[in-house]
C-alpha cells in the first residue's frame, strides 16, 4: 500500500496525472493556466483517475531566474535526485516518491523533467528511452534509430496508413514479462505531434542511413550494442545506473534483432517493414 502525502500549499491545488509507458506521474500546481498548457501538451496521456506512482509539485518562477545557457546535469545527492538545466531545477526522491520542479510556465521544461525522470526509472527495470521514431504495424512495434538528421522523422512521415506512430523522436522501451515492449510517448520531434498512446512487442530495431536505394543488413551484436548506447537517452552522472543501462542494452540486443536500414526517402521503404 502506498501512502500519499499532499504538499502543503496555501493556494488552490490542481493535479494532473500524466501516464507514459504505463507509469503515472502527478504534477501539482496552483496555476490553472499551467494546467491548461499541460492538457494541450499531453492530451491522451493524461489520466484523470490514475493513482500516481510519483508526484511533483511544480513551482512556476519568473523568466531568467536561472542561467538559460546551462546544460542538463543530473546527479544523486543526499537521498535525492537533482535535475538541473538552464530552464529548470528539480529535486526528486525515489523513496518518498515526491519531488519539486521550479520552472517557468512553458511546456519544454516539464517535458525534459519527465524524460529525465523516466530514464532514471527505466534504468533499474531493464528499459530505456532511445533516440528513435517508432510505429506499430500488424501488432508489432518497429523502432528506427539514429542521431539528428538520420531520418527518424522522415521515415515516420512516410509511414503507411496502417502504421500507428508511437513517436518521431524518443522511443519508450520496457521489459514486461520477459519481452520488450514499445510504448507511445508525447515526446515529439520535428513533427510536433505526440505519438499514439498504445504499446506493442518490439519486432526489430533499424539503424537508419539515408541512401540511394533501400536495403536491410544484419548488424553484429557488439556493433548493435555500441550503436544503441550512442542513442540511448541517459543524463545522470551515476556509474551504477550507467552500468545498468549498458546491461540493459546487452540484454535487449540478445532478444531483439537489430538491422542497418539504408533507405531512399520515399514510401517504398515501408515495403520492407512489418
Amino acid at each position: 500500500m502506498t501512502l500519499r502525502m499532499k504538499f502543503p500549499t496555501g493556494a488552490q491545488d490542481h493535479e494532473v496525472v500524466i501516464e507514459i509507458g504505463g507509469i503515472p506521474i502527478a504534477l501539482e500546481t496552483t496555476d490553472a493556466g499551467f494546467v491548461d498548457l499541460l492538457k494541450g501538451r499531453y492530451g491522451e496521456y493524461m489520466k484523470s483517475k490514475a493513482i500516481p506512482d510519483f508526484t511533483f509539485r511544480v513551482d512556476l518562477i519568473a523568466p531568467d531566474s536561472f542561467n538559460p545557457e546551462a546544460d542538463a546535469e543530473v546527479w544523486f545527492a543526499n537521498g535525492q535526485w537533482r535535475l538541473e538545466r538552464g530552464d529548470f531545477r528539480a529535486t526528486w526522491s525515489q523513496e518518498s516518491r515526491q519531488g519539486v520542479i521550479r520552472q517557468t510556465a512553458n511546456p519544454y521544461s516539464i517535458d525534459s523533467v519527465l524524460r529525465i525522470t523516466h530514464t532514471l526509472l527505466l534504468a533499474r527495470t531493464g528499459g530505456f528511452l532511445l533516440h528513435a521514431s517508432s510505429a506499430v504495424r500488424n501488432g508489432k512495434a518497429f523502432l528506427f534509430s539514429g542521431l539528428s538528421e538520420a531520418g527518424k522523422t522522415t521515415i515516420a512521415r512516410l509511414a503507411p496508413p496502417d502504421a500507428e506512430l508511437l513517436t518521431d523522436e524518443a522511443s519508450y522501451v520496457r521489459r514486461v514479462d520477459g519481452r520488450y515492449m514499445a510504448y507511445g510517448t508525447p515526446f515529439a520531434g520535428e513533427m510536433g505531434t505526440p505519438g499514439k498512446n498504445i504499446s506493442a512487442p518490439i519486432a526489430a530495431v533499424y539503424l537508419l542511413h539515408k541512401a540511394a536505394e533501400n536495403k536491410i543488413e544484419s548488424v553484429n551484436p557488439a556493433e548493435a550494442i555500441r550503436r544503441l548506447m550512442r542513442n540511448i537517452l541517459f543524463f545522470a552522472h551515476d556509474p551504477e545506473l550507467v552500468r545498468l543501462v549498458f546491461e540493459s542494452a546487452c540484454a535487449f540486443v540478445a532478444a531483439v534483432p537489430v538491422y542497418r536500414l539504408s533507405f531512399f526517402p520515399d514510401e517504398r521503404v515501408w515495403d520492407l517493414i512489418g
Partner: peptide
C-alpha cells in the same frame, strides 16, 4: 562495464560512457 560477444569485447567507462570495441 564490459561484454564479450564471440571474440570481440565491448567495454564502456561508467564514468564518461566512452565505448571501446
Amino acid at each position: 562495464a564490459a561484454r564479450t560477444l564471440g571474440d570481440e569485447t565491448i567495454v564502456m567507462s561508467t564514468l564518461d560512457s566512452t565505448i571501446f570495441m
